[in-house]
Design a protein around this nucleic acid. Structure first.
Lengths: 187, 187
DNA sequence: ACAGCCATGTAACTCGTTACATGATTAC
DNA sequence: GTAATCATGTAACGAGTTACATGGCTGT
């Protein structure tokens, strides 16, 4: 049964394990508040083509639902989909996270730039970290009420807390780099 | 002059700003000890095709060097390459880092798995973090001697320290998740 | 002699993106 | 009425990967 999917395929399957039937559009919205922080925000077009593949393989079931007058397609994970997801979790190692850290990449070669620019970049990064942390904190709050052991959002809340810690850690690292840079200049 | 390159192209240019002329093979080795931790480890084939593009645009200069009997091609950054790099650093925002965190992705949907598997995954991650940190610490040590303000490896050492802090933070986050999971089970 | 590293590429393919296109429903 | 949001796709393209192919040099 070794028919592998792109990881984003499994991610979509995963989003569908939380109970509800979702449209492609809704899956995108869910991805934007969850996957976006530690995976990717897939483009709409990719979600639809991935859903197509999952449907073809019988891992999700498409259902034409009436949304008022018009027809809308909702997707639900099938038993085969659950099984494929479990197999993936059990049978393939998670692997080491990949970081595409453009800020660090630029800091590595900051000697071709000037100190002000580098400082500015790090300040910008701190601002963006704040915004991201605020967004994630909001998501985290929305999980309260079902985030205790055994409740549906237990794992999402663990992940959200991890993410918040990660943002906080990045802020510390960026500030530390800024301190060191300013020490360099003042002697 | 708005002829953009893939980021990996700029990364290669960046590696060539540290002074020496390198072969494609050597660039790969450098990438494996630097870029790999916060960008990617590009495949050999990509490095060669990227070097081809950079050469075509005059951003690097290829030179046939005699390595004993055989001819080997080394690459050096040109003035135009320096300029393109500076333009990229100054003209385009760094953007927010992208994390492809397979461990967090799986933790998010750990409810389709069982507790032992999740625990095992986190322990595996801790092991891999240790190994990565050891590798990076070795690289960091190799920079000593030229890592003071104004010296060539100042920025690489800042970045390496950041990376070490990042790995340490990830270890803490993973252990915290493990603690919480075991609390869930024991009550 | 043979393994392993140095060195350079080509070809096929996949994931994922952007741009484009369409149209219905909802809120103001 | 009109802007925003909901909803669904197609087409072209690009970055990056794996697999394949070749061959010289080096250490034991």
């Amino acid at each position: 049964m070794r028919q592998d999917l792109p990881v984003t395929g499994y991610a979509i399957l995963g989003l569908l394990t939380f109970g509800d039937e979702l449209t492609g559009y809704e899956i995108k919205q869910r991805a934007d508040i969850t996957l976006r922080f530690y995976w990717v925000s897939p483009a709409m077009s990719q979600i639809y083509s991935e859903l197509r593949r999952l449907t073809d393989r019988g891992l999700v079931a498409a259902k034409a639902t009436a949304d008022g007058a018009r027809e809308v397609t909702t997707y639900a994970i099938t038993d085969a989909g659950q099984e494929a997801l479990r197999e993936w979790m059990a049978g393939t190692p998670a692997g080491f996270p990949v970081l595409k850290h453009t800020v660090l990449l630029r800091l590595l070669i900051a000697h071709v730039s000037d100190p002000e620019q580098t400082t500015q970049m790090l300040h910008d990064y701190l601002d963006e970290l704040d915004r991201a942390a605020t967004d994630l904190a909001e998501v985290r709050e929305a999980l309260r009420g079902a985030d205790r052991p055994g409740e549906p959002f237990r794992f999402p809340s663990l992940v959200a807390d991890w993410g918040l810690d990660y943002f906080a850690a990045e802020s510390r690292h960026a500030r530390r780099a800024l301190d060191r840079l300013s020490d360099d200049l003042t002697g």
